[in-house]
Design a protein around this nucleic acid. Sequence first.
DNA 1: GCCACTGTTAGCAT
DNA 2: CATGCTAACAGTGG
Length: 269
Amino acid sequence: MPELPEVETIARGLARWFAGRVILRCRHVSPHLLKGSGRAGLRRLPGRRIVDIRRRGKYLIFELGRGMKMVFHLKMTGQFLVCGADDARDRHTHLVLSFGRRREIRFRDTRKFGRLYLVNGDVRRVLPETLGPEPLDVGRRRFLDLLGRRRGRLKSLLVNQSFLAGIGNIYADEILFDARLAPLRPASGLDPVEARRLWRSMRRILARAVRCGGSSIRDYADAEGRLGRFQLEHKVYGRAGVPCPRCGVAVRRLVVGGRATHFCPSCQK
DNA sequence: GCCACTGTTAGCAT
DNA sequence: CATGCTAACAGTGG
């Protein structure tokens, strides 16, 4: 479930406690996380300082000393845990970074879709070439321009990482509800007022979700174990059959581009 | 026990 | 450029 707000929250929490700290030890517990030759790079982690921890799209990036980077994608169920060396470790823990005072960062992932890439120099060498810009960095004019170049349905476009990086299923549905736009609308068919509303809603929803620490639907928690609060503000996601908070008509659920999609059939046009 | 479903994304065919 | 299907994997709920 980690989308932009969740990854941002995790990155901020980790950076707060671990920026500037030196990795003492690295234990790679499972082969899934890091493929093939990348594993050799793990030996070069001990002794290296964590300069900063930041986010790009849904990727979490540890910037290390001398230009080395660890780039994580959490996919569906990846999570970070900050804990003590003696805390119980279950079979879904795939990587452990040890620090002084017996503190550890652990990467845990039940479905094993998550990935780690090690890179020297530019992170773009491991990010997809097609990765779109940051939603919160795109100005209104640029957004309208990007939108005008695309066809296809609004819902599919918002979750497309080559359009904008970081929006997933939950926030796409919440953004479209906020913008009062139907998920099946063709992206190219918006008038300027609607397009501007979509840009505003995107910024509003993502910024508010970051302030809330993301959405805890199933098992998401940040690295310090705190739950997000934005799920309390969901208006349509996961609420099929519940009255729309704006007009009272039952929220509908359908599948668009293979993704569950929730919307109000009455006030999203 | 079996089957359908779940937040992601890459790769492939159409 | 867009869409649909599959696969990677584990847990949950009917």
